[in-house]
């Protein structure tokens, strides 16, 4: 557990009018590790992501990203697009947000547009197909092919992304995020709606990303089988507060976490059969 620090979130608070969505949350994510954020619905997990990726400006708090090379970025002070472009944080969404009317390959190329823009001399070299641009494009294509291969969509590279099956779109979204060559990958419920086989493939893909590409992964997930199997570190949020953190096993046995998921002590005043229903429901 002595992996170098990648992301430090300090006193993150996000208020929307009177509603406190995230309340003084601090945690750290280490490089080359998978850090999972779990918690009941409405706990503020996605809000944390939105603050990280510049969708929201946090009300209070400091979000420091430290690259393995040593460069440090204060994410809360950066414009949205620079978080992806300069700090290299990539994310996916709970509901899939591919570019549905672009081909699968183009989705992966968009993610690499910054280096392509530079190589194309902001369009003109690209328009005339100069060698500088052609080489850059060839390299971008190589990276795209590599990821297509990884996610098993090589044969369907030229189809519209919107026509892919749900699980394929999920994987494509992760591949697209990886094509930005991030140092931190934030995944918002990547296993939602996947069947057990797809879920297992996803685990494999995430472990591959962590081990082979040596980047940090931040993961919001409801599927406990995923969380317990692949995460190195777990942070539990409830009602916008951090209630627990630690290794998967320690979190699973933490009474505070169990209470957050299954209800307060008072609930035991309910008739026993209702209590049982609640437990099964959860």
């Amino acid at each position: 557990m002595t992996a170098p620090l990648l992301l430090r979130i300090e006193h993150l608070t996000m208020r929307f009018g009177g509603l406190v969505a995230v309340d003084d949350v601090s945690f750290e994510a280490a490089d080359r590790q998978i850090t999972a954020i779990i918690g009941p619905n409405g706990a503020g997990k996605t809000t944390v992501f939105n603050c990280l990726t510049g969708f929201y400006k946090p009300t209070i708090g400091m979000l420091t990203l430290r690259r393995p090379g040593g460069a440090t970025f204060l994410l809360e002070r950066m414009d949205g697009y620079r978080i992806g472009q300069v700090a290299r944080v990539a994310r996916t969404f709970q509901n899939i947000r591919l570019f549905p009317r672009m081909s699968v390959l183009e989705n992966l190329m968009v993610a690499q547009h910054n280096k392509l823009m530079r190589a194309s001399g902001y369009t003109f070299f690209g328009l005339f197909g100069l060698p500088v641009y052609r080489h850059a494009e060839a390299r971008a294509l190589d990276l795209a092919r590599y990821w297509l291969d990884r996610i098993g969509l090589t044969a369907r590279a030229d189809e519209e992304a919107g026509n892919m099956a749900y699980g394929e779109q999920r994987r494509l979204e992760i591949a697209r995020a990886m094509c930005t060559e991030p140092v931190l990958l934030c995944l918002d419920e990547p296993a939602a709606g996947l069947n057990p086989r797809e879920s297992a493939e996803l685990n494999e893909l995430l472990l591959f990303i962590r081990d082979e590409h040596k980047i940090g992964v931040l993961l919001i997930e409801h599927d406990m089988s995923v969380v317990m199997k692949i995460s190195d570190h777990v942070v539990v949020l409830d009602y916008g507060r951090k209630i627990s953190a630690g290794s998967p096993t320690s979190v699973r046995n933490d009474p505070v976490v169990i209470r957050a998921y299954l209800g307060e002590e008072e609930d035991e005043a309910l008739p026993p059969e209702v209590e049982t229903d609640l437990k099964f429901g959860a």
Binding site: T53, G54, F55, G80, Y81, R82, I83, G84, Q85, V86, A90, R91, F93, R97, L98, F99, P100, R101, M102, V110, A111, H113, N114, R176, T180
Partner: peptide, 16 residues
């Protein structure tokens, strides 16, 4: 074209 389809996502991918 990316901005046209999903401006927020394009921004996250580092598109200005």
């Amino acid at each position: 074209r990316a901005c046209e389809q999903d401006m927020k996502m394009a921004r996250l991918l580092g598109v200005n």
